[in-house]
Simulated assay, not measured.
Amino acid sequence: MRNPSTRNQIWEWTGLNAVMSREAERADVGPGQVEVGIRAIGICGTDLHIMSGHAEFGEPPLPLGHELAGVVERVGAGVTAWRTGDRVCIDPLTGCGECGECLSGNKHRCPDAGEFGLRYPGGWQRFMVVPSANLYRLPGAIGFAEATQAETLHCCLGGIDKLDVRIGDRATVIGDGPTGLYFVQLLRAAGAGKVRLIGMRDYRLQLALELGADETTNVLAADSLPPAAASQDIVIDAAGTETSLAQSIELLKIGGRLLLFGLAGKPITVDMQTVVLKELSLLGSTNAPRVWSRVIGMMASGQARVKPLLTHAYPFGELDRAIAFARSQTDEAIKIIVTVDENQGESQ
């Protein structure tokens, strides 16, 4: 065991926008399981939606956190692929392991699928026990903070795969949040010919240009010209609003492909007549279990750049402050990372 402490510090979501820290004994590591000492945690918008009651997953009290990276601390019986000290990121998704979807590599479609940090206890803790199959090895080129973003990137890359991007495709991304900025990079890596990002914050739009976008549009700018309608081969709606969906349908040319990625949180109206007459393909995408290794390779090679999005960091003991900042400073922060010192808590 790398850390002699038998105690585990945990931050739990306890109610409406509330978190509380407590201590508990470290969990036993069963057969086929691995204990990971968490080193970095990404604060995701889904965490905030759960805490505010706008996303129904688990019930409080529950440690959230599904963007995770760390170091193997203990391995259970039968685990041969991992050793103490291995650097890893964590796939938070689990399935039953026995149904047809799980056996075909599509555990996200399993009727019993769930995620650590959404339905089950997540990574807002110093030590976390997960199935050994949910770990991916980190090369030295990827730091722990960057590695937290493999979870988000894998969801985005799964959507890119569904779009079947062709060399020279004209593509527009709507939404300048972290996923929108990742989609810009992935479209460029997939061979899209011209990539535009539509958003509302100038500094994020400038970052998009640095990450590979050919042009950007700020929908709030008085002098901004609307993008040309009915010209795009691909549109990715990473905003998930009724307005962004309507704009996506308008932008697509006949036979275009629309990836629906942003979550609206409630049913919204769709212009089905235009969808039918333009013969559009509408695609939804969530998890993509098969692409994890590709994502790590893209991060290590620089095809997917994460560091420019990591704008703020907090120590684990101030996770409550990180959450409060994320809720109150959404325009300033792109991605907030909580870091866990290896020696933190040994004297507790």
Rank of each mutant, 00 (worst) to 15 (best):
D47M: 04
E35W: 05
V235D: 06
S224K: 00
G117R: 04
P31A: 15
A213E: 04
G191S: 11
R7S: 12
W82Q: 04
G191V: 11
P61M: 09
T94F: 03
V276Q: 10
I41C: 07
G212H: 04
R196M: 13
P92C: 13
E56F: 05
I296D: 05
P227K: 12
V340F: 07
D271F: 11
S5W: 04
P289Q: 12
E115Q: 15
G240I: 13
W292T: 03
A190L: 06
S301C: 13
V29T: 14
G15H: 00
I249F: 03
G199K: 00
L135S: 08
G240F: 08
A81L: 07
D331M: 09
G30L: 15
S231R: 12
S285M: 09
G65L: 02
I334E: 05
A229H: 10
G256S: 12
C99I: 13
V276R: 10
D223M: 07
V291Y: 13
D233H: 15
G256I: 10
L197E: 02
R83Q: 14
C155G: 06
G85K: 10
K266H: 14
K162L: 13
T241Q: 15
G97H: 09
M298P: 01
V295Y: 05
V306S: 06
A239Y: 00
A189Y: 09
G53Q: 03
G76S: 03
G45N: 03
R321I: 01
T216H: 01
N134E: 06
A313F: 13
T94E: 09
M1S: 15
V36N: 08
S132F: 01
S301G: 13
L118R: 04
S293T: 10
T179S: 15
I236C: 01
L153E: 02
T243P: 00
S244H: 02
H312L: 02
V219G: 01
V295G: 06
W11M: 00
L260Q: 07
R119E: 15
L187P: 01
M298E: 12
G158E: 06
K335F: 08
V71Y: 00
I160E: 03
V88T: 08
G114P: 00
Q33A: 14
A141R: 12
P4S: 04
T217Y: 01
S281F: 08
S5E: 07
E318P: 00
C89N: 11
E346N: 12
E146N: 05
A24L: 01
C155K: 08
Q232N: 06
G97D: 03
Q149Y: 11
P92H: 11
T6G: 15
N106K: 11
G265E: 04
F183R: 02
Q125N: 11
A55W: 02
I38A: 09
V306L: 09
L211S: 06
Y136P: 01
E59S: 15
I268K: 09
V195T: 11
G105Y: 04
R305N: 14
D233Q: 12
Q232V: 02
E56G: 07
